[in-house]
């Protein structure tokens, strides 16, 4: 699956876009990412699957595009 990252999340991961193995749901994906990139534990973000925002733990279809959306405050 494809993972897209924005803002500070892209800084932590080091890329705006990476290919990773498939994960069955968003909780397992986030758990994996927090293990790989511990700095993500301190951040709040929203998740979109195939360009649609989701909330709670949601299943991820094979080869979906998952985007991690941090809040921005600047103006």
């Amino acid at each position: 699956m494809k993972l897209l990252a924005f803002g500070k999340i892209a800084e932590i991961i080091g890329k705006q876009e990476i290919e990773i193995e498939n994960f069955p749901n968003t909780d397992i994906l986030v758990g994996y990412l927090q293990q790989q990139y511990p700095a993500l534990k301190d951040l709040k973000f929203s998740i979109a699957i195939d360009k649609k925002q989701v909330s709670g733990n949601v299943s991820i279809t094979t080869d979906a595009e998952v985007a991690l959306l941090p809040p921005f405050s600047g103006g």
Binding site: K8, S46, S73, G74, G75
Partner: peptide, 15 residues
Amino acid sequence: DLYPIPPSAREVPNC
């Protein structure tokens, strides 16, 4: 709806 739990102000620096 997008961010039900606010980030702490220290989490995201401003301009």
